[in-house]
C-alpha cells in the first residue's frame, strides 16, 4: 500500500489554519441564519399575510435550489451586476446564512407550533404583550424542543461549508486540495482534513448536549 503520512507533515500548520478559516465563516453564517430564520418563522406563524407569503416564497426558493448554485450566483453575479467585488468570505457567509435561514425557519416554526396552545392563552390572559410573550414564554420553550434538530442543521452547515472551496476560499477543504496538488498525493491530506471535520462536528455535538442539559433544568 502506497500510503505515506510523513510527507504531509510540513503542510500540517497550513491545513490547521483552515480550521480557523472555516469556523470563522461558519460562525457568522450560523448567526445570520438563526436571526433570519427566527424572523421568517415569526412571519410564517403571524397574521400579516404579505409577510407570510414572503417567508413561504423565500423558503421555497432557498430550499428548492442547490446551495452550490446559490453560492456561485452570489459570488459571480454581484460583481457583474453591481460592480462591487465581493470577497469569497462575504459570499460564503451570505450564501450559507441565507440558505440555512430557510431550513432554520421551518424548524423554529414547527417548534413554536408544538408549544402547548395554553401557554399562549395564559400569557394573553395575563395581558402580556405579543413581543414579550414570544421572547420570554414561547421561544424558550420552543427552543428546548427543537435543539436536536437545530444542532443537526448546524452540523450539516459545518460539513457542507466545504463547498466554498469551489469559489477559491481557502477553507479546510481547499487547503487539502492545495496540499494534494503540491505533493501529487491526495489521499493523505484529504484523510487529514476529514479527521478535522469529524472533530469539529464532535465538538458541536458536545456543545449541543451541554445546552440540552441546561434547558432540561426545569424538568
Amino acid at each position: 500500500m502506497n500510503l505515506d503520512f510523513s510527507q504531509i507533515v510540513p503542510y500540517i500548520p497550513f491545513m490547521l489554519e483552515g480550521i480557523w478559516v472555516t469556523l470563522k465563516f461558519v460562525f457568522f453564517a450560523i448567526i445570520l441564519g438563526s436571526i433570519l430564520g427566527t424572523l421568517l418563522a415569526l412571519f410564517k406563524i403571524g397574521s400579516i399575510k404579505p409577510l407570510r407569503w414572503f417567508a413561504d416564497a423565500y423558503t421555497s426558493i432557498f430550499r428548492g435550489t442547490p446551495l452550490i448554485l446559490q453560492l456561485m450566483i452570489i459570488y459571480y453575479s454581484i460583481p457583474q451586476l453591481t460592480g462591487y467585488d465581493i470577497s469569497p468570505f462575504l459570499s460564503a457567509i451570505l450564501a450559507f446564512g441565507l440558505n440555512s435561514s430557510a431550513y432554520i425557519s421551518e424548524i423554529i416554526r414547527a417548534g413554536i407550533q408544538a408549544v402547548d396552545k395554553g401557554q399562549m392563552e395564559a400569557a394573553q390572559a395575563l395581558g402580556v404583550p405579543y413581543r414579550a410573550m414570544m421572547k420570554d414564554i414561547i421561544l424558550p420553550q420552543a427552543l428546548k424542543n427543537i435543539l436536536p434538530a437545530l444542532m443537526n442543521e448546524f452540523i450539516t452547515l459545518t460539513k457542507e461549508s466545504a463547498i466554498v472551496s469551489t469559489i477559491g476560499y481557502l477553507d479546510l477543504m481547499r487547503r487539502a486540495q492545495v496540499v494534494g496538488a503540491d505533493l501529487f498525493r491526495n489521499f493523505e491530506p484529504l484523510l487529514f482534513v476529514g479527521l478535522i471535520y469529524w472533530c469539529l462536528v464532535m465538538g458541536l455535538t458536545m456543545i449541543g448536549r451541554v445546552f440540552e442539559r441546561r434547558l432540561k433544568q426545569s424538568d
Binding site: G118, Q119, E121, A122, A125, G127
Partner: peptide
Amino acid sequence: HKIRQQIGMVFQHFHLFPHLTVLENLTYA
C-alpha cells in the same frame, strides 16, 4: 391587553410557565 390585565384567568390545565420557577411565574406578568 390593558383590559385583560384587570381580568385574572385560571385554566383547567393550569398552563403554568414550565421553564420558570414558581416565583418567576408570579412575577413575570
